[in-house]
Design a protein around this nucleic acid. Structure first.
Lengths: 152, 152
DNA sequence: AGTGAAAGGGGCGACGT
DNA sequence: ACGTCGCCCCTTTCACT
């Protein structure tokens, strides 16, 4: 499949604002509305675009406290790993979880209301998962940059 | 302003799929189309919804290699901090940058094509920024969970 | 792949409850 | 705050290039 400079621009625009009309996009890209429409459908069909979502302001919904948690398992057997990953994915405060290289096994991004809620999260949710060896938490002091847009 | 259970559900639906029509949403919420419309406009107006975006499949656009970089500055003077933050925000491979507590000052999320591109990124982009003391990189082996949706 | 016209549906405003 | 009505515009398809 062809993926040219126009497609790249289109993805750029859609990653910045998916509510633009095809007409607006057609102006920016110097194409007809139908051409834009066809290209977008192609990008969706071929899996370039996963989905369209609304991004919520975390301060507004009382989830302004962001923490990253490093986690080490006591053992790395298949059984422990699978179980941990299954359990952690269920926790709603955990937006992201990565199996990573380095001193720790996992890195989690956690969103809660405040430090008190974080304590609750640690005690009642995270550390109730079996086989966790040790954890190390880092708190976000300031969000310098945060985008969902991949620059292609 | 009132923010009830229906608004919560609405945000939930829109965070999962923002391309749903108000008609579909009205069915799920047992409301009229206009009521849904008014509520969404209210959520946008009050800043609950920041924006609507397309989420791109990183494997499809050759950015499947994800790394987290810890960074320590040589000094923490206002000048160094401001300059570092300004420079790092400009780098297109850096999707996220957080000022954090702990041993290191910053945590970066970096998206590149492969290990070779990562090296290029480190040598040509990141470490050319002044005042960086030390860095520590962790590579993502597996993405266990990754969502943009905040569970309210 | 791109264009333009035509049909169908949804966004959005006015008004009513 | 929610519901009904109606217009306009956008999405989507079709025929043609």
């Amino acid at each position: 499949m062809i993926f040219d400079a126009i497609d790249r621009k289109l993805l750029d625009y859609l990653q910045a604002d998916s509510k633009q009309t095809n007409k607006e996009l057609s102006n920016k890209l110097n194409l007809s509305v139908t051409a834009v429409y066809e290209r977008i459908k192609k990008l969706e069909r071929e899996g370039y675009i996963n989905k369209y979502v609304a991004l919520v302001n975390k301060q507004q919904v009382d989830r302004a406290f962001v923490a990253f948690c490093h986690i080490k398992l006591v053992q790395h057997s298949q059984e422990y790993v699978v179980k941990f990953e299954k359990e952690v994915a269920k926790i709603k405060e955990v937006l992201e979880c990565y199996h990573i290289s380095g001193d720790y096994d996992y890195l989690l991004k956690v969103l809660v209301k405040d430090m008190h809620s974080f304590r609750e999260f640690m005690v009642k949710k995270l550390t109730t998962i079996d086989h966790i060896g040790s954890t190390h938490s880092m708190f976000v002091i300031n969000e310098v940059k945060h985008t969902t847009a991949i620059n292609i």
